[in-house]
Amino acid sequence: MSAALALGDDALVLSHRLGQWAGHAPVLEEEVALANIALDLLGQARVLLSLAGDEDELAFLREERAFRNVQLVEQPNGDFAHTIARQLYFSAYQLPLYRELAAGDGPFAPLAAKAAQEVDYHLDHARQWTLRLGDGTQESHARMQRACDALWRYTGELFRPVEGLGVDPSALEQGWLRSVGEVLERATLTLPDGPRSGGWAAGAGREGLHTESFGRMLAEMQHLHRSHPGASW
C-alpha cells in the first residue's frame, strides 16, 4: 500500500532525525520538546506502517531505495535553525494533509484525526521558534534565513501526487505557501524564491531516490536490529 508507506516513512524518518537531538539540544526544555515530537511521529509511523505490512520489517529491513519518504524529512539536523525550518515546512504540510484525510472516510481517517491534534502542537512549536530566531539577534536571523533557503528546494516534492492517498496534495500548496509565508514575514525573514520544481529542484524521495546522508541515517537506525535478528528484550 504505497500511500501508507509514503506517510509512514515521512513520520518514521523525521522521528529518527529528531531523536538524534537527544543529548545535544541547546536547552533541556527543547531536548524534551524535540523528543516528544519525535515520539508522536513514531506513534504515527507505527500505525501507518502496520497498514502496509509488518512495522518492524518495514522499518529495519528495507534498503534505502525502498523508502518512500520525501527528501525533506531525511535532511540532516544541521544547526538548530535547520531543524526548525524543516519542522516548519513539514508540519505546515502534514497538518492540512491530516485534516483532509480525517474529513474523508478512507483507511487513514482515524489515524489522521488523532494525529492532527498532535501536529497542531508541532506546527505551533516550529512557528514560535521561527519567530524567535528570525526576529532575534543578527546571528539567529542569519542562521534562520540560511536554513529556510537551504531547505526550500525540497518543499516542492511535498505536493506531488501519492498513489492511493485519496487526497491530492497539490491542492494544499497554495495554503502552505500562505501559511509559511505569513510566519516568515512576521519573523522578518524573506520567503525564499529558488526553484521548488523542475530540473533544479530536489525531490524524488517518493520514488525511492534519496540524498547522500540518508544511507548513513538508515545504517544507524537499522544497525542494532540487523545485528541481532529476532532478538527481543
Partner: peptide, 11 residues
C-alpha cells in the same frame, strides 16, 4: 515549554 515529562503534559 509546551512539551514536558510525557507527551500529554506541558511545563
Amino acid at each position: 515549554s509546551r512539551f514536558s515529562s510525557t507527551a500529554c503534559k506541558a511545563l
